[in-house]
């Protein structure tokens, strides 16, 4: 998987591409953990280029959410493709995360 991080004001946008699965989850955990350690608590996981996610990828996202919410922050997800969206719905994570249409809308929702 490939991950790019961009800052938009005080929001960090984590743009994930490829597969977030058992093989790549360590990369996601490392990068997001560094962001939180540096004080980022408003995060957007931009899934516009994410093709596949498994339960370990979901677990890493929940772990990030728990960590950030304990610091009064939040994680929002954006631009889920149909397959990833279906997985979020099956596991009911669409009720746990705010799911936005795109990263811009997700960043904006932090301000609202």
């Amino acid at each position: 998987m490939n991950i790019k991080v961009e800052s938009l004001g005080d929001v960090s946008v984590v743009k994930c591409g490829g597969n977030l699965d058992a093989d790549s989850v360590a990369v996601f955990k490392k990068i997001t953990s560094e962001l939180v350690n540096q004080g980022s608590v408003r995060l957007v996981v931009d899934c516009s280029l994410l093709k596949f996610i498994d339960s370990m990828g979901l677990g890493a996202m929940i772990s990030l959410l728990r960590r950030v919410r304990s610091r009064d922050g939040d994680v929002k997800v954006s631009a889920l493709n149909a397959d990833v969206k279906a997985i979020f719905e099956i596991t009911r994570l669409h009720r746990l995360f705010e799911v936005c249409t795109d990263a811009k809308a997700a960043c904006k929702s932090f301000k609202g």
């Binding site: 498994d54 979901l58 099956i90």
Partner: peptide, 19 residues
Amino acid sequence: RAPHELETHGRGLFLIRQL
């Protein structure tokens, strides 16, 4: 049963059953 929403593990078998 399905794991609690905030649980970070234990979704694999649940997912298989749903799919």
